[in-house]
Amino acid sequence: MKLYRFLTGPDDASFCHKVTAALNQGWSLAGSPTYAFNAEAGVMQCGQAVVKDVHGKDYEPDMKLSEQ
């Protein structure tokens, strides 16, 4: 199965660590990162799509994708 996640966070080191952790868990970048101003919070937000192939499992809607 192929899994998809969209990681988001503030424009700081915590977002870079989140993406780095996903890459080290076997996820791959999918497309370009996004960057936008969150007017409600008053901060810049980052986003990055990641994908991962997992063999021997079937997708189920209730699975926790970050644990695959």
Rank of each mutant, 00 (worst) to 15 (best):
S28N: 12
A30P: 02
Y4I: 04
K52I: 12
S66M: 12
Q68C: 14
R5M: 15
G42I: 01
Y35K: 03
S32H: 12
C46H: 08
F6E: 11
A22E: 08
Q45M: 14
L3F: 05
G9P: 02
S32N: 11
C46I: 00
F6M: 10
G31Q: 06
D11S: 07
S28R: 12
M63I: 13
R5W: 11
Q45C: 03
Q45G: 00
V43G: 00
G9K: 06
A13P: 07
T8Y: 07
D53I: 11
W27R: 05
E40C: 03
D12F: 07
A41Y: 00
M44I: 06
F6V: 14
F37P: 00
L7D: 05
A49I: 09
Y4E: 06
T8Q: 08
Y4H: 10
H55R: 15
M1V: 12
G56N: 13
L29M: 14
P33G: 00
G26C: 08
V54W: 10
P61A: 13
L7E: 10
D62L: 13
E67P: 14
F15I: 01
S32M: 11
E67S: 14
D58I: 13
A22S: 05
S32Q: 07
S14R: 07
A39L: 01
L3W: 04
C46D: 00
T34S: 11
A41W: 00
M63R: 14
A36K: 01
Y35S: 10
G42Q: 01
K18Y: 07
E67M: 15
S32G: 08
L65W: 07
M1N: 06
H55T: 15
M44V: 07
T20H: 10
E60M: 11
F37N: 01
L29K: 07
P33R: 01
L65V: 15
E60C: 13
T34N: 06
A22N: 08
T20Y: 03
L65F: 13
L7S: 06
K18H: 13
V54T: 14
D62F: 15
R5G: 10
P33C: 09
V54Q: 09
Q25G: 10
V19P: 08
Y35P: 02
Y35C: 09
N24M: 06
L29P: 04
A39C: 01
D58M: 12
L3D: 04
L7P: 04
K2I: 03
K2E: 12
N24H: 14
P61G: 13
S28W: 02
D12R: 01
L3H: 07
T34R: 02
A22C: 07
V43P: 05
G9N: 01
P61L: 09
D11H: 11
P10L: 13
Q48R: 04
A22D: 06
T20M: 12
A39R: 01
L65N: 10
N38R: 00
G47A: 08
A21G: 06
G31E: 05
S32W: 08
C16E: 02
